[in-house]
Design a protein around this nucleic acid. Structure first.
Length: 770
DNA sequence: CGATAGTTGCTTTTT
DNA sequence: GCAACTATCG
């Protein structure tokens, strides 16, 4: 390595025409980059924002920049903080940079071996936050081997606290309360920053108290939720008492790289600002902040998770002297696709503005199709895919991108019928599967007896006759004595409090745990894990299970144990599982990919199907209700992301009828369909649906605003005027076309639907067997 | 305590 | 339409 920082820190290129001739003395890894890309790689001093549109080679720039810093600035990997949006992205970046460095070493006469990147600070915000927090856990009252609890545990804990506080958990869903607390955490709002008024009506206005208790309980459990991983670190770093720790990190990280900056939330932003020494300058007035953020405000799609587009819009203010480089040449999509996407996104008011261009050919127009119902849509997509197949396309080149997870089902069913191989990305992650969570709970209790949530999870799995009331007794005792659930078992088993049968069961269980724990330091990890799962009867439980999923679950458990072998210690493995582990990696087999639009971020395919473009579904009604214009614009960005995933072909479709909650609803084509420019699409619609061609022929006046909320009436008995009960009302619902009710009479269901014309005119009614 | 029958709410999107 | 939850009874 040589230090050639000065050689590269000045933009080497004055104008574009020089670019291609000026390659002779530049390192070869810079060749093939266009001028702004190269500029983005070489600007290593001071803050830099790379506004990179879809398909402009953002990943390549980041990778090359990383390699460039390593080579020219003589920085060690451990001095570069690199934040990616997903673990997969981190892994890919690691592989790419190592490959690039290997190539460079070969060119320089080295052995071409990819260098080791041990100690590299590369990963998601969560993973990096956890790594920091382990080192300083004591400063926030935690032990460095704290467990990371997932959303499920979080909700259970909050539910417990709410029940203790006598809050009706049916009126105030613990899940929603947990969501609100997470939202506060994402905004770096500690319980002490809040007043009861911030909770409003929520949990009878006691949510702030619940939040405080929740944090206290987590400390007792020696646990963190996802939000805490950053929140605690921020608390530590901004405490003046810990200035030396902050300084240590600031000095260590000479360079900071952040991908997908548009999707950072407030906590992530604050964490970055602290580490990136925003505004710090040396004696000569040069910025000390070598932070480089890459993002695209048009692709900000995580507002619902607390992401602030404002972070990217404010970059220059936050990091004075920041340079902004725009990458606008799109290398991915053909002309029609790019033009259509640009045209859709141009409807958004709130954007920095970029003009993407491409020297690709126009290619095919976007195929827009209106169909009768969801089933017909799936059939059509299937047919189009088969046509592509006949043209010799690999299925790997094709993706179906849906708005919401439940939409995948219709396509799966159709693809199974057709024999089109597919894979669904998303769904439950490996570690979210029941059997994995159970197995991990066992391991957690072994590693950390005080992990009440884990113990509660498996105390009766497999069934051992420990029911709710026993657990409640244990908890009551634990609370009153201020001890853990585990310790309360030990204490109560020495007394006469519990029934003999329960007592002997629990004694046997704790004896098992003591035995496993005693082997923790001596036994081999994988052997211990299989021993635990065998001895506890957990494996046997699934072996005895005759359900079709059981074999798969056993397979997953085996996989878990295999995965364990790669780790030195159990706690290390537990962290890996909760933060990093991905569902099995993409196999090489030839499959059509089905996934959500969110999941498709950063990916590209030759052909992309975009079904379900209907008002209410996409844009999602809920988003629009909750966030108004802001929500709509985010939905539109999602549409933009969807279209721009396609390299060659893009298909948009919508259905006039769709089944939701097992009921048929009519749907109006999405406004985004109307925003697709005529010149770049080719539209056809099933006869009789919306008139010839475009959706604008559909008269939707008055429909869009109509309510779609379901309501439940209080009185359930359906009576005639003289008081005779002749049926039971199941539910009353309202949708944009009217309202209706289902009444149960003599084992039959009677559906009655009315419309909104003022007079209660029956549109239709039908009887089915209940 | 556990099985079962009855009831409710869910469908955004994810680290 | 269905999974997940609650209430009730043996």
């Amino acid at each position: 390595m040589h230090n050639a920082e000065s050689q590269y820190s000045e933009p080497a290129v004055e104008d574009q025409s020089d670019m291609n001739t000026d390659m002779s003395d530049a390192p070869s890894y810079l060749s093939g980059l266009n001028p702004p890309q190269r500029d983005a790689v070489e600007t290593v001093d001071g803050p830099l924002l790379v506004l990179a549109g879809a398909g402009t080679g953002k990943t390549r720039v980041l990778t090359t920049r990383l390699a460039h810093i390593l080579v020219t600035a003589q920085a060690w990997p451990s001095q570069i903080l690199t934040v990616t949006f997903t673990n997969k992205a981190a892994q890919e970046m690691k592989d790419r940079v190592r490959r690039l460095l290997g190539e460079m070493s070969q060119e320089n006469g080295g052995d071409g071996q990819p260098p080791s990147v041990d100690g590299w600070w590369l990963g998601t915000f969560h993973a990096l936050g956890a790594r920091m927090l382990r080192k300083h856990a004591d400063l926030v009252g935690l032990n460095s081997n704290f467990t990371i609890i997932d959303t499920d545990d979080q909700v259970r804990l909050i539910k417990q606290l709410m029940e203790d506080a006598q809050i009706d958990t049916r009126k105030w869903a613990p899940k929603a309360m947990a969501g609100k607390i997470s939202e506060w955490k994402d905004k770096v709002r500690l319980p002490s920053d809040l007043t009861p008024r911030d909770a409003g009506e929520m949990a009878n206005g006691q949510l702030v108290t619940i939040y405080r208790q929740y944090q206290e309980r987590l400390k007792i459990l020696n646990a963190c939720d996802f939000g805490d991983l950053l929140l605690h670190v921020i608390t530590i770093l901004r405490d003046p008492k810990n200035a030396h720790i902050l300084a240590e990190y600031q000095n260590r990280f000479k360079y900071i790289l952040v991908d997908e900056y548009q999707d950072t939330n407030t906590a992530q932003y604050m964490w970055l600002r602290l580490l990136a020494r925003a505004g710090d300058r040396d004696a000569d007035g040069n910025s000390l902040s070598n932070i480089c953020c890459v993002g695209d405000d048009d692709q900000s799609i995580y507002g619902w998770r607390g992401a602030e587009v404002g972070n990217i819009l404010r970059f220059e203010k936050d990091f004075p002297g920041a340079k902004i480089i725009r990458l606008e040449q799109n290398y991915r999509s053909t002309g029609h696709i790019l033009a259509a996407a640009s045209s859709v996104i141009a409807n958004n008011q709130d954007r920095m503005g970029k003009t993407l261009w491409s020297d690709h050919a126009d290619g095919e127009k976007i195929l827009v199709r209106g169909l009768w119902d969801g089933e017909a849509e799936a059939r059509w997509v299937g047919e189009e895919i088969e046509q592509l197949q006949h043209k010799g396309w690999d299925l790997n080149r094709i993706a179906v991108l849906v708005r919401a997870g439940f939409q995948t089902r219709e396509f799966e069913e159709r693809f199974i019928q057709l024999g089109v191989p597919y894979r669904v990305i998303g769904g439950p992650r490996f570690y979210e599967r029941m059997e994995i969570r159970d197995a991990l709970a066992y391991l957690r209790v072994v590693a950390q007896p005080a992990d009440d949530l884990a113990l509660e999870r498996i105390i009766n799995t497999p069934k051992r006759g420990i029911g709710n009331s026993t657990v409640k007794t244990l908890y009551t005792f634990a609370r009153s004595k201020g001890i853990s659930l585990y310790d309360s078992i030990l204490t109560l088993c020495d007394s006469d409090e519990l029934r003999p049968k329960v007592r002997s069961t629990l004694t046997a269980l704790t004896n098992d745990f003591e035995r496993w724990r005693s082997l923790l330091d001596t036994a081999e990890q994988t052997e211990l894990a299989s021993m635990i799962l065998e001895d506890s009867g957990y494996i046997q439980m699934w072996q005895a299970d005759k359900s079709p999923e059981a074999p798969g679950r056993l397979e997953n458990l085996r996989e878990l144990i295999t995965g364990l072998s790669a780790f030195e210690t159990l706690p290390e493995f537990l962290e890996h599982v909760s933060l990093v582990l991905e569902t099995q990696d993409t196999q090489q087999t030839d499959l059509v990919t089905i996934m959500t639009l969110h999941g498709a971020k950063g990916l590209e395919f030759d052909a992309v199907f975009l079904p379900g473009w209907e008002e209410g579904l996409f844009p999602s009604q809920r988003t629009m209700d909750e966030n108004g214009l802001k929500g709509l614009e985010e939905e539109r960005r999602l549409a933009y992301v969807g279209i721009t995933r396609a390299r060659q072909r893009s298909y948009v479709s919508f259905a006039a009828n769709r089944r939701m909650y097992g009921k048929w609803i009519n749907a109006v084509p999405s406004r985004f369909v109307d925003e697709l420019p005529e010149d770049h699409i080719s539209a056809t619609t099933d006869p009789g649906l919306y008139g010839p061609g475009r959706s604008s022929h559909w008269d939707s006046s008055g429909l869009a605003a109509a309510a779609r909320t379901q309501e439940r009436s209080r009185e359930r008995k359906v009576m005639s005027s003289d008081g005779e009960v002749f049926g039971v009302k199941d539910r009353v619902f309202h949708d944009k076309f009217g309202y209706g009710t289902i009444i149960h009479i003599d084992g039959h269901k009677l559906d009655i639907n009315f419309d909104h014309t003022g007079k209660k005119r029956v549109m239709d009614s039908f009887v089915t067997k209940a």
